[in-house]
Write a protein that binds this DNA or RNA. Structure first.
Lengths: 180, 180, 180, 180
DNA sequence: TATGAATGAGCTTTCATTCAT
DNA sequence: TATGAATGAAAGCTCATTCAT
């Protein structure tokens, strides 16, 4: 069995993502991680502290999954289309739970600036990756906006329909952009 | 002074939107509405029940504000651009709190199907309005995705930057669409 | 439709007996009686007041049912045996709810002396009827004790077994008593 | 001072028995046990859970008191008579509060099957003890019925009169039974 | 007479956190 | 390092009753 700290973090990976932050109590976490309460507070200053570590781990995990999924792509266009397929793959895997960062952003009071900062930072990193791939600033923003919207709306409607439509849109955008 | 039911609903309009659902307790609502606890439960079966009434009122309010804001538009293009300006207006007015429907969707457990249904229904109504204005199905979905994404990302980054970029994008899309 | 007061009383006849006193709220009573809350308090000073009226009505009802059931008896022995059969009949009719007087006695605080008095009074009336029929004081007490015990234990075990056994016992007691 | 769990249980031994279940709030229990509310719920899943533990403790206590009281008896007859004297002793000690099991049975909704089961089980254990002592099945049931009735009616009338009469009855029954 | 609106006091339960060992 | 015990504060909700109309 792995170490307590790791078990707590792994448990939060499941619970925070599936149930959200406020709906997941410390008690449930320590029970499912099989760790004592005092042990929890030995490793994490507070629940908010765990939340931050959770975000870091979740981001690493999500990015590496995405990179894995798109690694075979030979062209930029193919890579982007695959990244939208990745959303479909994740929706199926995680039952349309959407994005942990956006979900938790919504339920955390605005005065918890540290948590909101880390959410923003990770999301900005994602956006940056679009801008790195596409030198055209407007086009990068355009695709990023569609990407975020696909995560959101597929969670909302519990359907991949808009992701499929977005793939057509993206295809069009990239082809007309290359033709210039 | 207005009637208790109205005061409760009005208070929820402020608190649910600004603080979210879980962070807003019954106690705070009744205190700020200046109503007794039993009186609250005379008018609303439960907190979830109030949430549903809140959604209905919020949707009516938001739509009427939007229609007001865009009413002067003479062309479809102008109307859409104004609807993005409306998001900027609301961000300023409501301090980048984004969309109550999406915010609360994120923090409500999935098994509260009645609440999730009303969120989906209202959001679907919004999406429908795009499809009514634009016969081109893909184009309507495209603009709708950008619109939702603008609400979301401007809340996330506390900035109207992506809304401004979207206006350029939308302008382009509509002009090339009309030229066909 | 009957008058409000009557409807309230009739509703309490069902609810107090089936659910007990504390588990039956005023709200449920007025709803099922289709009467306004203020109307309730017009007719009854308090819930306790209704309880007393309920006891009076319940007692009258129960006694008249018992007399009906045993009216055909030609001998004293037959009458007593029929009164035990009556308990079986009531258990079937009322799903082993036992005696309202004893049930409610158990859940009313001891300092509500008025309610406890009326319970005692009605129960004493029942006991007196045994003593009127049987001049032998000990024998009357004996049968009365068995009778109460049958009500109680058949509710407890949800079974008429001990009533059946009691009929044999009573038969024996009365026959040996007459032979003296 | 003893441990919280023990203090809670001991307090419930007094309050549940004296006031009943519904009339005894968690607040009163924790105050008289000098324990915090959260501490209560650390040790007991719910009030119903405490009720079950209370029943187990009460039953052990009651049986051991009964055995103590009757331990000196040299004949079966003496033992039974002493067990009726025990009821008088308990009435005086506990101010005619009767039987906790029957009292609480009356005020608990029928759908709480777990609680009703434990009541029935303990009561069946008591009844079994009569059948173990007296091989004659009818006689055992007879004495058991009288015994339960004595507990009940002495609470109802706040008097030991019927217990005293029962002692005469029991004496007679046992002597005529032995003479056969 | 009849009523819908309103209430204070109470209920059981859960929360994230700390402390003594 | 690790832990079981304990907590103050707050959660959502229900009670029998009264009052203004």
């Amino acid at each position: 069995m792995s170490k307590p700290r790791e078990r707590i973090l792994n448990t939060s990976m499941i619970l925070f993502h599936q149930q959200g932050y406020n709906s997941t109590g410390i008690n449930q976490i320590i029970e499912e991680a099989d760790v004592s309460k005092a042990s929890f507070y030995q490793h994490f200053k507070s629940k908010d502290d765990l939340c931050i570590e959770f975000f870091n781990k979740r981001f690493k995990y999500w990015v590496s999954e995405l990179e894995n999924f798109t690694s075979g792509a030979k062209t930029l266009e193919e890579k982007f289309l695959k990244s939208f397929d990745f959303l479909i793959y994740m929706n199926q895997k995680e039952d349309f739970r959407g994005c942990s960062f956006l979900n938790i952003m919504s339920e955390i009071p605005v005065d918890k600036i540290e948590i909101h900062k880390i959410i923003r930072d990770h999301k900005a990193t994602l956006r940056d990756s679009f801008h790195k791939d596409l030198k055209n600033d407007i086009l990068a923003a355009h695709l990023y906006l569609l990407f975020e919207s696909c995560i959101l709306t597929s969670q909302l409607y519990r359907s991949n329909e808009l992701i499929e439509k977005s793939k057509l849109i993206v295809q069009n955008l990239l082809q007309s952009s290359l033709s210039h």
